[in-house]
Computed example of a mutant assay.
Amino acid sequence: MSSSDIFIGETIGTAILILLGGGVCAAVTLKASKARNAGWVAIALGWGFAVMVGAYISAPLSGAHLNPAVTLALAIKDGNWGDVPVYFAGQILGALIGATLVWLAYYGQFHAHLTDREIVGDPGVRDTPAKSVEAQEKGAGPVLGIFSTGPEIRNTWQNLVTEIIGTFVLILAILTQGLNQDGDGLGALGVLITSFVVVGIGLSLGGPTGYAINPARDLGPRIVHALLPLPNKGGSDWSYAWIPVAGPLIGAAIAAGVYNVAFA
Rank of each mutant, 00 (worst) to 15 (best):
S2R: 11
S2T: 14
S2H: 07
G9R: 13
E10M: 05
I12P: 04
G13E: 07
A15L: 09
L17G: 04
I18E: 10
G21T: 09
G21H: 09
V24I: 15
C25Y: 09
C25G: 08
A26I: 08
A27M: 10
T29H: 10
T29Q: 07
A32C: 01
R36D: 01
N37K: 12
N37G: 06
A38Q: 07
G39W: 05
A42C: 01
A42W: 02
I43S: 02
G48D: 03
G48R: 00
F49E: 01
V51R: 00
V51C: 00
M52H: 00
V53K: 00
S58A: 15
S58Y: 06
P60S: 07
L61N: 10
L61Y: 13
S62Q: 12
A64R: 11
A69H: 03
V70F: 04
T71R: 06
A73I: 06
D78N: 14
G79I: 03
G79N: 07
N80T: 06
W81S: 04
D83R: 02
P85E: 06
Y87D: 04
Y87R: 08
A89C: 05
Q91F: 04
Q91E: 15
Q91C: 02
I92L: 15
A99W: 06
V102I: 05
V102H: 07
Y106G: 04
G108Y: 06
Q109H: 06
Q109A: 06
H111Q: 13
H111D: 09
H113K: 01
H113Y: 08
E118N: 13
G121K: 14
K131G: 06
A135M: 12
E137H: 09
G141Y: 09
G141S: 10
P142H: 13
L144H: 14
G145F: 05
G145M: 07
I146T: 08
F147I: 02
S148F: 01
S148N: 05
G150S: 10
G150A: 03
G150D: 02
I153F: 04
W157A: 07
N159G: 08
N159H: 05
L160E: 10
L160M: 12
V161D: 02
T162D: 11
I165K: 00
I165G: 00
I165F: 04
L170I: 04
L172W: 14
L175Y: 12
T176W: 03
Q177R: 15
L179T: 12
N180L: 05
G183E: 14
G183D: 11
G190I: 08
I193M: 13
T194A: 14
F196Y: 11
V198F: 11
V199H: 06
G202L: 07
G207C: 03
P208G: 12
T209G: 09
G210C: 13
G210M: 13
Y211W: 15
Y211R: 14
Y211E: 14
Y211N: 15
A212Y: 02
N214K: 09
R217G: 02
L219D: 06
P221Y: 07
P221A: 02
P221M: 06
R222K: 08
K233H: 10
K233I: 02
G235F: 03
S236R: 05
W238T: 10
Y240W: 12
A241S: 15
W242I: 13
A246T: 11
G247Y: 08
L249M: 14
I250K: 06
I250N: 05
A252K: 12
A252P: 04
A253Y: 12
A255H: 08
G257V: 04
G257N: 10
V258S: 09
Y259V: 01
Y259G: 04
V261F: 11
A262Q: 07
A264T: 13
